[in-house]
Design a protein around this nucleic acid. Structure first.
Lengths: 347, 347
DNA sequence: ATGATTAGTTAAATCGTTTTAATCGAATGT
DNA sequence: ACATTCGATTAAAACGATTTAACTAATCAT
């Protein structure tokens, strides 16, 4: 298999036949013993030992492709992501890898960068390569899949697919309770761009939880993001706009960390200090969140764990589990840092 | 291959034999035509058309494993990384993917997290799965590899391996020239932890370039990092220490962005403003660098491109190229942001 | 007309495993 | 003593594609 020729060494690859000949048996017997298949039942221990010894001595490695051709098992899954290498997908993929590793599975990764044509073509290619299941990351899949599939933050509910999502309810509880404990009563909110896959879910959860804990959501303290600026200035214009309304507030729940950074800049330009005058809480816990000054209090999406859970659920299905949930909600964590503090006594 | 049963549909998988029968020919002929192999030379166009039509009609997909069993080609490479999901490896992997995609290659990823035993075991498994070459990311490989191999930031020079490295010389030129143009003369330096794979190379280049452009390196303005704190506080204690020496300076070339952030904090605590009093330049361009206040001027490692170059070099070798360089240096870019400015007139 | 070419296709070997059916001698039951 | 079961192993048929050698039938040269 493309080995660099090392002269002066036996060039023949050690096959099942080779080890069989080496001890005067046939491939069938050797195969049965090495896989200790039921048909090896009646083979005496003595012979088994000889076989194992020979296999070890010759350093026999079964040919993966020959084996797969017979068995149809590849112990490989496919990961389809919109993007890799960014701070959202890569911790997820890392989580997937962590789990697969301990189960001796491998994965093939493909990236479609929003292109639905590529998505189809790649799914096709993955299944030609015998993946036994698929995990999609932040992707819109339209057709019911041919293979067991787990979606992470899937954009669409599809039957046959388990969707791994963040528990938005819990996220809202964490954030709002934190603010409440710090005695904030006038809280401003940023709503995400409705095009983003879970902006609506996140907002609905905030409304529910706010009502439940008796926190008012004032429409005049609410702004709606309607751009998709990927830079940290994302939140800036919206907070500028909010400030023109002259409505005082002591805390801001940003849509995410990215927008929180722009928001803080806007607040500071207005002479408001964070967190002394206004507390700001973000969402995601992006790598920069800990480095920023002030470092951001935020609701962390446990991306790594989402990957692990996805991989685990997928392997369960591959290994025959018949019933499975249509959704698994993952609990976020609150990370308290410098950007939130006790509400000022008078604002 | 694990397909979910779709009742009322032909369950039989379309094989070469199936399409051959469908038009009354033999598998051999069909195979020859579909791969237009030399032996299809004497087959009339008319027949070829029929074959292609039939293959299309039946939606024939060659079985990857059967094919590989014969040909030994898998169009798959292995990527071995110390870690994935962090901001160093993941852009590299993304770059690898970008290149492989357009060449219709796939890749398997394994992570060894520093464990040399795992590293060996995984290399073994990868080659059993027929990868045709390997890219290592930030990994120490000790033995000369059996397959064509490209190392990205390989820790050790090995014959037969092409090492993709950053052009440290160029990095030093970019950073020091930038400072020189801003009229900085008293420049402080942080040397990296010597355990880090390229701390020494980076420092050597700085010395060479400084000499060439007539910039003095004052040992009293040089500090040595000797911890491997992975947090942004990395640089903090060393700059504190530097400040106790009471030697004035107008610029600091940090070891990397992470340490630059801690350095800035230390400077600010001393009442020094960045960049008005001291300019700071980092290295890497980590995701947080653009978000920090002040945003960091830095020398960017083009990680994405390093991945692409690695993949390209590897495919060249897989496809038969005999001579290859032992090292490819990648040019960094200077990213000018807020943390550097004209040197103050009197310090 | 006869042998040599050529065109068009097929049969069969091969890749390396797994698995089922078959074999053959020894032991067992009655 | 004969059929039967058991124990240990083998032969052979898959799996699905590729490739080489072989085989017709038609064509060509002489």
């Amino acid at each position: 298999m493309g080995q660099i020729e090392t002269p002066g060494q036996k060039p023949s690859v050690i096959t099942l036949k080779a080890v069989a000949q080496h001890i005067g048996l046939t491939p069938g017997t050797v195969s049965a013993v090495l896989n200790d298949s039921p048909s090896a039942r009646s083979i005496p221990q003595e012979t088994k030992n000889r076989i194992h010894a020979a296999a070890k001595e010759l350093n026999y490695r079964p040919n993966f492709f020959a084996r797969t051709l017979r068995n149809k098992r590849t112990y490989t899954i496919g990961v389809i992501a919109e993007e890799i290498g960014d701070s959202y997908s890569s911790p997820i993929i890392s989580g997937i890898e962590q789990y697969l590793r301990q189960r001796d599975y491998f994965f093939l990764t493909v990236v479609h960068r929003h292109d639905p044509v590529l998505l189809n073509r790649y799914s096709q290619m993955l299944s030609e390569r015998g993946v036994e299941g698929i995990i999609t990351v932040d992707t819109t899949v339209n057709e019911a899949p041919l293979l067991p599939t787990i979606a992470i933050a899937g954009h669409k509910k599809l039957k046959g697919v388990t969707n791994i999502v963040l528990d938005h309810q819990r996220a809202a509880v964490l954030a709002l309770n934190h603010l409440k404990e710090l005695s904030h009563e006038r809280v401003a909110f940023m709503k995400g761009n409705p095009l983003s896959s879970d902006a609506q879910d996140r907002w609905d959860a905030i409304c529910t939880v706010a009502a439940a804990i008796g926190m008012k959501i004032d429409p005049e303290l609410t702004v709606q993001i309607d751009t998709d600026d990927p830079t940290p200035m994302l939140g800036y214009p919206f907070i500028k706009q909010l400030l023109t309304r002259q409505k005082p507030f002591t805390a801001l729940f940003a849509y995410n960390d990215m927008s929180a950074i722009g928001a803080i800049r806007a607040l500071q330009e207005q002479g408001l200090r964070v967190p002394q005058d206004v507390s700001v809480i973000g969402f995601d816990d992006i790598p920069g969140a800990a480095f920023y000054t002030p470092s951001l209090t935020t609701v962390r999406q446990p991306l790594n764990r989402m990957g692990e859970v996805a991989a685990q659920s997928l392997l369960e299905r591959i290994e025959g589990k018949k019933e499975y949930p249509s959704e698994i909600a993952i609990e976020p964590e609150l990370v308290v840092r410098e950007s939130t503090a006790k509400a000022p006594s008078f604002s």
